[in-house]
């Protein structure tokens, strides 16, 4: 009899699910991401600099430049309107700019880390120094973009007022994260050259998927539940759109990043060179906020935590976020505590 009721319950549940999902799906017209109002203020080929427009004057006077990773797209920072890292920072009074790296193609196969850091980042920093008529600006680097920001701030310490890194690896001598382990066996030259000098985004995504091989399965198993609610359905679709939109990697920059960082851990050892110049992290003397995610399986905390020991800053802070690599941007706690904290940290040092 109980088994019998279970069947009946299941039918009723399924009927409800289907009708809710039908309604919700029929209302989905387009899956919109990155909706915070913005303007393009500078561009150089595929690389663009966006300014997030604001209705009220910024309370933090120094502009903030965000350097996202080359892997995946910056839209993660403004994925859904009510959980947008960028919108929240803007509403907390920060004047926010972000670099859009664009989509590398085979014509970018010889684009180097020098081109990205000494070229694009430096150009954007100089542009903002002029635009705001300030000697130095605030810089926030995300993941690989954080590693770039650290390198940049070591080379041009006078141009950066305050530096923040989010889920940024600096100690690549790690065996806990699978990406770090697999990279050690990777024949990066053969792979990059075989792909014609440009590493497809799908190839990287396959690697990310394997870090938790059943994640996608779990996500899809929960889909009927997800579809019952319009908001959760939309957020699922937004995340799907973001994950699928994975740009290819410029070969030369990719090779150097894998070899110098993942294989030889040069930045931490003080052996990393950019444009023929050695990068000394001790040159980073400006105030520094280092944020890592406790359950990050892409950039494990152990790869991030040593940052503050390697730099020369005296005003430095290490902040643990309770969540994963992506939760830093879209988690509920990101909105309620992390972003306000970042804004306050900047305001205190303005």
């Amino acid at each position: 009899m109980s088994q019998y009721n279970k069947v009946a319950d299941q039918v009723v549940e399924q009927v409800n699910t289907v009708s809710d999902a039908m309604r919700n799906l029929s209302e989905v017209e387009m899956v919109d991401i990155a909706t915070a109002p913005r303007e393009t203020v500078w561009e150089d080929g595929k690389v663009k600099l966006y300014h997030f427009t604001r209705e009220t004057p910024a309370t933090v006077k120094t502009p903030l430049l965000i350097s996202y990773a080359l892997v995946n797209r910056w839209e993660m920072m403004d994925l859904q309107p009510n959980r947008s890292f960028i919108r929240k920072l803007v509403s907390e009074g920060v004047d926010v700019y972000i670099i859009d790296w664009g989509y590398a193609t085979r014509l970018d196969r010889y684009k180097t880390m020098e081109d990205y850091i000494l070229g694009n980042i430096n150009d954007c920093v100089d542009f903002l120094r002029k635009r705001h008529n300030v000697p130095n600006i605030n810089l926030l680097g995300v993941c690989q973009g954080g590693t770039f920001s650290l390198i940049y701030s070591s080379l041009y310490p006078n141009k950066i007022k305050n530096l923040i890194t989010l889920v940024t690896p600096v100690d690549f001598d790690n065996t806990e994260g699978l990406l770090f382990r697999w990279a050690k066996d990777m024949d990066v030259d053969a792979i990059v050259d075989g792909f014609g000098g440009i590493v497809p985004g799908d190839f990287l995504n396959t690697g990310f998927d394997l870090l938790k091989p059943m994640n996608k399965t779990r996500k899809y198993m929960a889909l009927p539940e997800t579809m019952k609610n319009k908001d959760t359905l939309m957020n699922f679709l937004r995340m799907e759109r973001w994950v699928a939109d994975s740009p290819s990697q410029a070969g030369e920059a990719y090779k150097k990043f894998i070899k110098d960082m993942y294989l030889h851990n040069k930045l931490k050892k003080g052996e990393f060179e950019l444009g023929g110049k050695k990068v000394n992290l001790k040159n980073v003397k400006m105030p520094k906020l280092t944020i890592f995610a406790k359950d990050d399986h892409i950039v494990p905390p152990a790869t991030t935590k040593p940052i503050n020991d390697l730099i020369g800053s005296t005003d430095k802070e290490l902040l643990e976020f309770p969540g994963g690599h992506i939760g830093v941007f879209v988690g509920a706690r990101s909105q309620s505590s992390l972003t306000p904290k970042v804004a306050k940290w900047l305001a205190d040092r303005d």
Partner: peptide, 28 residues
């Protein structure tokens, strides 16, 4: 009937997903 309704959901959610993800979800 369960299968039919699941198929309906699958087809409709697929049409809203990016093409790359459609393959995964279809297989799944």
């Amino acid at each position: 009937w369960l299968k039919k309704s699941s198929d309906w959901l699958r087809d409709n959610v697929l049409s809203k997903m990016p093409p790359q993800m459609q393959g995964y979800y279809k297989d799944f």
